[in-house]
Design a protein around this nucleic acid. Sequence first.
DNA 1: GAAGGGTGAACAAGGCCCAACTCATCGAGG
DNA 2: CCTCGATGAGTTGGGCCTTGTTCACCCTTC
Lengths: 226, 226
Amino acid sequence: MNKAQLIEALTERLGDKKAAGAAVDGLVDVIVRTVNKGEKVNITGFGVFEKRARAARTARNPRTGETVKVKKTNVPAFRAGTMFKEVVSGAKKLPKVAATKTTAGTARTTATRGTAAATTTTRTRAAAAKPAAATTRSTTTRTRAAAAKPAAVAATTTAAKTTRTRATAAKPAAAAPKAAAAPKATAAKTTAAKKTTTAAAKTTAAKKTTAAKSTTPRATAKATKK
Amino acid sequence: MNKAQLIEALTERLGDKKAAGAAVDGLVDVIVRTVNKGEKVNITGFGVFEKRARAARTARNPRTGETVKVKKTNVPAFRAGTMFKEVVSGAKKLPKVAATKTTAGTARTTATRGTAAATTTTRTRAAAAKPAAATTRSTTTRTRAAAAKPAAVAATTTAAKTTRTRATAAKPAAAAPKAAAAPKATAAKTTAAKKTTTAAAKTTAAKKTTAAKSTTPRATAKATKK
DNA sequence: GAAGGGTGAACAAGGCCCAACTCATCGAGG
DNA sequence: CCTCGATGAGTTGGGCCTTGTTCACCCTTC
């Protein structure tokens, strides 16, 4: 489907061809501009456009075989949302027309993940506002963990500059994470630092309820493997 | 940026808020439907939405560590277009407003790759219409090559069913590709079968012009490596 | 209508995505 | 305004996908 065909298809919904063209161009322009600013564009049910930082690396010219240096750059990325993924995978069928108000069909969306949750009763809502200072995790590109350590080990996290460095890098260096995992394990690992200690109390309550139906009962089992 | 904010931003371009909302919803719906049908949505300068087949594999539950079987599924994917990538990488700045007619700015698009090409003079345009029969390459998901062989070896391409099987599977089986590469090499590899022999003449002309400024002067050098 | 730019394809190798699952927060729709 | 539902984060390991480069063709734009 070309852009022309897309506009044509959109014309059937809006009724105006010129408006459809302007809409497509305008929407693309807005998204490009917003992503370029580094801000994410979150369209519920569709997906998220974001700018992703890519670290410098050494690729190779497939024609000659010689290695070439690629300096760090930014690339646009898109992650599909839940509904989009469900539709494409065939798990969910999209409503018939959805022309004007998307009537019906939107109700039963809990087919996949939610199922029998119902844990909303005890939402204590403690530690509400985002700690701001605690979220040292650079917002660039999903640099996993390796940042919210118990402050003492924070100095050793030099590996954070490589873009999405997993916790594995810092794990062997410092013994702190494993020690913290001992008392409660599961969700208490590195996240305890961010959750402001209250995590322990909540996790216990949550685990009690979820244990009845959860499909992954033993979380701490393989944790001792190291 | 939320969907509401996106609609608001789009409203500034279209002038009508209700139309903006309908445009976003409609566009999303059209894209989702089209991708779901297996057809690609190609928006020039922005990117391509497509359905990508994912083969069955054995993943593992990150929490417990136990392996789980994942059966084949389809996922939506998006590849950013040239302009989008250039803008985000910082190579190109987007025009000031682009509100109504995208006046000015669109002219100088040759900043990145084209530079001093001007090779359009000798476009011989031989072997015009797509061979149709030759493009047996299943349209599912980038099943690279492994299909347009010289017909004789075509029977051996049973590996094509595994989704994106590279030509490497068929290469050791038949000696044909390497033999064809002898006279000119470079672009003559496996593509020679599709290009209908005229490729040799064209490549020489093109190489002469590009050699002056091309960053990869010696193309045939490592080709003899095998 | 004409011309030029963008996209697809091929190849290699390393990087990043993905899976199941839970909880908390925010967006969205009624 | 409120409640329901989606998104994000966090985890480990396997493997698909991305990146760079050149050429040809189609589509887009003037």
